[in-house]
Design a protein around this nucleic acid. Structure first.
Lengths: 207, 207
DNA sequence: TATGGATGGAACGATAACGTATCGACGATA
DNA sequence: TATCGTCGATACGTTATCGTTCCATCCATA
């Protein structure tokens, strides 16, 4: 069940309860992301967030003690939406499936705007850096699964440079979509997958 | 009244001249970037920019008619600082040299904070998208030179997928430095260069 | 030396968002 | 049914920035 999300949630309620609505909390998160995408993190106005969620400002300040805490809670909530990739039987097909899923994520207009903002903020404040790291590690876990499967199949040497490999998988697509603002076709993704596989197979730890 | 908005503005001055100081203009640019890096684009205050440059707000509004125009001029000024890569004699060495130069750029604390902000803003406003495209094309021209040299040397087939290749060159390093906030060692750059070369050589248009 | 435009600085009224406080209404619990 | 915390809403004083205007000063030219 949904627990009391209150900041001071551990207190006992003498009687006659009125629990903070979880629906309202998620509505606040959603409104926060929309404001973020539209205006940029630094320009998020909590008044507009509340208005967009159809709520009063008090509903925000009852839940979070600061803007940072609000942002952290919202991003954490966002990071939970990650599914593990299915096994397609070959490294290149796995990579292509990964790219297709990543493209779907990066096509989302909110995400495409929020992600670079998150990275910029990560360079500014330690709190946002923690959030950014958390999101990055969730992504990284997916790539890790693909690598391990390929090693078990014998498509990759166990001595593959894992750090480099984990970065190679999403980098080119992120560059195209977020930096350049281009959404590749499926054929382009296939070519990208082939190139990535070649890079992975070449990146053994040789020294 | 026809106002001279240009920085250098070598117009006919009737007499007794007092030219807008180029020193002050560049000081305003510098202050703008520092504010941008520190607070984020959306939160740049022209009052703080002027104060940081040791100037009055009027000095800004005398030069630029709007915040957008100011930002555009500053970014354009920034984009001019790009040098063409020297010919090292081999593709892999060229790529490594390219990565080392890119690392030097992305190591700059201002640039590492401003770039993702610029990409986020590019998804929000057409004006910033134009600026972002301009910066991207300058970078792209460098990579193009490297590719053409490799083709002439015979290290790459002329049928190489140029779009993909141009994206592969900077993508992984950008991902590591801007998205993850990590600065790779020279050895890691060398491994990355080798992997990129393998990807390039595999990315022929085969269809 | 005289001229005239640029300069830093200050003030202006107008917005906008801040964080807090208070209100009656609502509804879940006891 | 009585209770009591959350709800939307509104108002408050404060702070920050906006874009504009004015002014005394500076300084490169003519």
């Amino acid at each position: 069940m949904e627990r009391n999300r209150s900041v001071e949630g551990a207190r006992k309620k003498p009687s006659g309860a009125a629990v903070k609505s979880a629906k309202l909390t998620t509505a606040l998160y959603r409104a926060f992301f929309e404001e973020w995408a539209e205006r940029g993190f630094a320009a998020v106005s909590l008044e507009r967030v509340a208005a967009k969620a159809g709520a009063g400002k008090a509903a925000i300040y009852r839940r979070f003690s600061s803007r940072q805490e609000f942002a952290a809670a919202a991003v954490t909530e966002l990071g939970l939406t990650i599914a593990m990739p299915e096994d397609t039987g070959s490294l290149e097909a796995d990579v292509l499936a990964f790219l297709i899923r990543l493209r779907a994520v990066l096509r989302h207009p909110l995400i495409r705007r929020i992600l670079p903002d998150l990275h910029a903020e990560a360079a500014r404040s330690p709190e946002m850096r923690i959030l950014n790291t958390r999101v990055a590690e969730a992504r990284r876990a997916q790539a890790q699964v693909i690598l391990e499967r390929a090693i078990k199949r014998g498509e990759l040497d166990a001595a593959v440079d894992r750090d480099l490999a984990l970065d190679l998988l999403p980098a080119a697509l992120y560059w195209r979509m977020v930096v350049l603002g281009i959404s590749p076709t499926r054929d382009q993704l296939a070519a990208e997958a082939a190139a990535i596989v070649a890079a992975l197979q070449a990146s053994m730890r040789t020294s």
